[in-house]
């Protein structure tokens, strides 16, 4: 077993152990914190597929995160009120259905946004993805039907068959399983022919093109899958907070997702989890010490970029690999 695998295992076990312990000693808030870590890690794992493997620096993944969140919020609202949604279809409060809708909607948005954005590259790509996310953001702020700027409350957390999702620990376990499955999927994709082509397209697009593979299609597929994962995370995030609002779509959110990945280690399997854990812990711990926590968060992030290339995992495993 390589050193990174050992670290990954430890991370996975720790993320499970902390909430179990917190539950045993009656400190349910730490379960909530761990759930938040798991969900943000899931969102960042989605982005990692595009960014880490494909080299597609998307500064607009908040769009997919928010779309997933709104899918959950809107379905739950209609499920609760009984008003039909569209085409006579009703809402629902069943998580698996909501997840499916969230992922598919985000995936379709990813296809549309990707199809235009992937014509560009470099800084243009960063900025056009940001522009699309801003478009969705302003749409959500001004569209009155689902709360606009005020957002949308989910009065009762959605249900998972056979589990009491209102219990913090049960909901954490749901998120934990979804995260592990997604990380597994990420590993499968990375090892597949598709994954190799995607990484090759990042490292040497000309060569890939000469072998007869069209980088555009591969990238678009990766971008859409990436959007689906992030959208799924958005749906879970909505259920965690029992609330959705345009702030899930803001450019700060896109920035945070990128931060999570770099903090953990770009392109690494457990990078997003390591990054999310570190970020949430820093935010929580610093917030407890000083009102100026954002100042120190900035200093820490700056330190990581300048001096700890490869992120937390790169630092721990001693390999300053980048991507």
């Amino acid at each position: 077993m390589s050193r990174e695998t050992v670290v990954n295992l430890i991370l996975a076990v720790l993320l499970l152990a902390v909430p179990l312990l917190a539950n045993a000693v009656g400190q349910p808030f730490y379960i909530t914190l761990a759930t938040r870590i798991a969900i943000l890690a899931l969102a960042a794992t989605g982005l990692n597929l595009a960014l880490g493997l494909g080299g597609l620096v998307s500064f607009g993944h908040a769009a997919f995160f928010g779309i997933g969140g709104y899918a959950a919020g809107i379905l739950a609202t209609h499920g609760f009120s009984g008003d039909p949604l569209i085409f006579g279809l009703s809402g629902t409060n069943l998580m698996p259905v909501i997840w499916l809708v969230a992922a598919v909607t985000a995936g379709l948005a990813g296809l549309a946004i990707g199809a235009i954005s992937l014509r560009t590259s470099g800084v243009y790509f960063i900025m056009i993805t940001l522009a699309f996310a801003q478009m969705v953001y302003y749409f959500a702020v001004s569209w009155p039907a689902y709360g606009g700027e005020d957002g949308l409350s989910i009065l009762v957390r959605n249900q998972f068959p056979g589990v009491n999702s209102m219990r913090p620990l049960s909901f954490f376990l749901i998120c934990y399983v979804v995260l592990l499955v997604s990380i597994g999927l990420f590993a499968l994709i990375r090892a597949s022919r598709f994954g190799s082509a995607l990484q090759a397209a990042r490292q040497n697009p000309v060569r890939v093109a000469t072998v007869g593979i069209r980088p555009f299609r591969i990238r678009l597929t990766a971008f859409a899958i990436s959007a689906m994962m992030t959208g799924l995370a958005g749906a879970l995030f909505a259920d965690l907070n029992r609330f959705v609002s345009p702030s899930m779509l803001s450019w700060h959110m896109s920035g945070e997702l990128i931060v999570l990945i770099i903090l953990g280690g770009t392109g690494r399997l457990f990078g997003p989890l390591a990054g999310a854990a570190l970020y949430v812990i820093i935010e929580y711990a610093l917030g407890g010490i000083t009102e100026r926590w954002q100042f120190f968060l900035g200093l820490i992030l700056l330190g990581v970029v300048l001096f700890a290339r490869g992120g937390l995992l790169g630092f721990v495993t001693g390999k300053a690999r980048h991507g």
Partner: peptide, 19 residues
């Protein structure tokens, strides 16, 4: 401090209620 962010406000509220 909620930083004017709804998600953060929810997290703090959870902490205040639960812990």
């Amino acid at each position: 401090d909620d930083g004017q962010k709804p998600e953060l406000a929810v997290q703090i509220a959870d902490k205040m209620i639960q812990s």
